[in-house]
Simulated assay, not measured.
Amino acid sequence: MQKSLVAEFLGTFWLVFGGCGSAVLAAAFPELGIGFVGVAFAFGLTVLTMAFAVGGISGGHFNPAVSVGLAVAGKFPAGRVVPYIAVQVIGAIVAAALLYAVASGKAGFELGGFSANGYGEHSPGGYSLLSALVIEVVLTSFFIFIILGSTSSRVPAGFAPIAIGLALTPIHLISIPVTNTSVNPSLSTGQALFVGGWALQQLWLFWVAPLIGGVLGGLVWKMTGEVASTDATS
């Protein structure tokens, strides 16, 4: 258990530091062309690389919604959900703190949005609370479904991190304009703690929506994916 928790801490740290770091630091140079696409790939690659690195130790969740979704699907012990979520949140906060330390070292530094998630006037595209809720629930549920499907016994072993990392890329491409993309409550928490104010006030949505999505993804897998797996082997 201890090794699994350390792995989850490291994986979540890398996800936040690499993904949000690309948004906060690299995207500040638009002439280099990173933009939404670069940030989306950065998030996908962080998950892909750490899923390969420590997935065999902890399962490579790095996200409270993933832990909840897998538990709902019966693929993860319910008793381990809370410890996993705790270290995921800690990993995200530590990553955000170090990212802040780096970013604030630039002359004239202004915190700005610091890659925090928001809706309404704090949505990158000005999208409403309802839009944010829908996009976060739908995309998180599909993310959980893809994780469960790519790690099932029907799929050749060893390729799941690729599918999972690539899935996170279009998820970001779709939802960055709407919420700046959460689908991960720990990530949202770390960034919101440093932005404060509106980010903390709106943080509830980026716990509620991804967790609902996680539950839905796990339930849909139990109703469809497991049935298909049973049929294929019968």
Rank of each mutant, 00 (worst) to 15 (best):
F43C: 00
V94R: 11
V68F: 14
V47Y: 07
S22Q: 09
G79E: 08
G33Q: 05
V82N: 11
H61G: 03
L25K: 10
W14M: 15
K75G: 08
S123L: 07
A92F: 08
L130W: 11
T49K: 12
V89M: 14
V6H: 11
G59S: 14
V54T: 13
I85N: 05
G56I: 06
V102M: 09
W14I: 14
G11Y: 04
H122E: 09
P83A: 09
C20Y: 03
R80T: 11
P30C: 13
G125Y: 04
V81E: 08
S67G: 07
F29M: 14
A78W: 05
V39P: 01
L48C: 13
A101E: 12
T12V: 05
R80E: 14
A71F: 11
G91H: 06
G35A: 14
G125M: 06
Q88W: 06
E121I: 12
V72M: 06
Y100C: 09
L48S: 07
I90L: 15
H122Q: 13
G74V: 14
N117G: 15
G21K: 02
F114L: 01
V54L: 07
H61I: 05
Q88I: 10
L99P: 05
T12Q: 01
P83G: 13
E8L: 13
L129C: 08
H122A: 09
A51P: 03
T12I: 06
I93Y: 09
A71K: 09
M50T: 15
Y127S: 14
L15W: 01
A28I: 02
S128I: 08
G125I: 08
L129T: 08
G21W: 02
V24L: 03
E31I: 06
M50W: 14
L70W: 04
W14D: 10
V94K: 07
A28F: 05
L45T: 13
A28Y: 02
S104F: 03
G21L: 00
F41M: 04
A71I: 12
F13E: 00
E121S: 15
A107V: 02
L130D: 06
G113H: 04
G126F: 10
A101Y: 07
V102N: 10
V66D: 01
A71N: 12
Y119W: 14
L129I: 09
A103Q: 06
A65R: 00
P77N: 11
V102Y: 10
A107K: 10
G79S: 11
V81Q: 07
A96I: 07
N117H: 14
F43Q: 00
V68I: 15
I85L: 12
A78T: 07
N63Y: 11
G55I: 00
V89E: 08
